[in-house]
């Protein structure tokens, strides 16, 4: 395989990885607050369908993204209310959210099948080559010649990383996920932190979904996420709750996602359906490998999955 093809492949991997990146970052934020939201797939679908609906009817990219974020956030709000305020089982609540999101998207999306986004709309997501960075040989083409959402993805990862490790609020958030009772005793507003980060996490998942329906595909199709939300949940474990590592994980899986199609033209005779299994297989392998060793640095937030109730007795 020659270099041009490899660069094109890696570039495509970045694009395919971007929806995963948004969703993974969103779930990292949620899990850092101590809540395991398995509704990522549902929130992505809600974001994807609302983004497309608004994008189609207004031709305004910004409004479409806002709608997607709000839709994802709305899904997360249901989850937050159930698990934070009503202390429902997080696993089941998350699954219910995925079912809800799937139904909601199928429902709203019924009228959107076969519609095309306007030229004016798609102009908002043209590739922009970044000055200086875009001129670096190979890397420039792979990483810095993309549509604006890819850059927003990078930026979100960096901001989230800085937030978690370098700010007061980030410290408080980590404490909430580790030991909410300690955070509470230190006068951190635990419930507020949980709600806020679950909602923001949901909004990011919504944007991740919208990237699929608005930029990547870009038409509406039923079940457009095809399990990416679940892969994002696995990527959170893979990146050990670290936003910087999530970038790597997301792009790796972006590559795995498209490798089947890319290899088809190269004379390798393996069915594309077999290749389509790869991301899922690799996810399992990675999870198993990650579970081999347990150390403190890469451990999940300690209160993950547990409801917090101050007046428990």
């Amino acid at each position: 395989m020659n270099t041009v093809l490899v660069i094109a492949f890696l570039k495509a991997a970045v694009i395919a990885g971007t929806p995963l990146l948004f969703a993974t970052l969103g779930e990292i934020m949620t899990e850092r607050a101590g809540n395991l939201n398995l509704g990522v797939e549902g929130m992505m679908l809600m974001g994807a369908v609302m983004g497309f609906q608004v994008g189609y009817s207004t031709s305004n990219p910004l409004l479409a993204l806002i709608a997607a974020a709000l839709a994802g956030g709305a899904g997360a709000l249901i989850f937050a209310f159930l698990t934070v305020s009503l202390r429902s089982n997080q696993v089941v609540s998350g699954l219910a959210l995925t079912i809800f999101g799937t139904g909601f998207a199928g429902f709203v999306g019924q009228g959107l099948v076969g519609l095309k986004l306007s030229e004016k709309f798609s102009a908002g997501f043209l590739k922009i080559k970044l000055p200086l960075l875009g001129d670096i040989p190979a890397l420039g083409e792979i990483f810095f010649n993309h549509d604006i959402l890819v850059y927003i993805g990078y930026l979100t990862a960096i901001i989230l990383g800085l937030y978690l490790y370098n700010t007061r609020n980030g410290l408080n958030l980590r404490a909430v996920g580790e030991n909410p009772a300690a955070a509470d005793a230190a006068s951190v507003r635990v419930t507020r932190y949980k709600y806020l980060h679950i909602l923001l996490g949901g909004a990011l998942c919504g944007i991740g979904g919208a990237y699929l329906s608005l930029v990547y595909v870009p038409v509406w199709q039923e079940n457009i996420t095809a399990g990416r939300g679940w892969i994002a949940v696995a990527l959170v474990i893979f990146s050990s709750w670290n936003p910087y590592k999530a970038v790597f994980g997301a792009f790796l899986f972006g590559g795995l996602d498209i490798i089947g199609f890319r290899l088809q033209g190269t004379g390798i005779v393996i069915s594309q359906y077999i290749f389509a299994m790869i991301p899922y297989l690799v996810t399992i392998i990675i999870l198993v490998v990650v579970s081999f060793k347990k150390d403190r640095k890469n451990a999940p937030p300690k209160s993950l999955g547990e409801p917090y109730f101050r007046e428990e007795r």
């Binding site: 404490a175 300690a182 230190a186």
Partner: peptide, 8 residues
Amino acid sequence: HFKLVDVL
């Protein structure tokens, strides 16, 4: 039971 976060 101390209200401290172990990993900090």
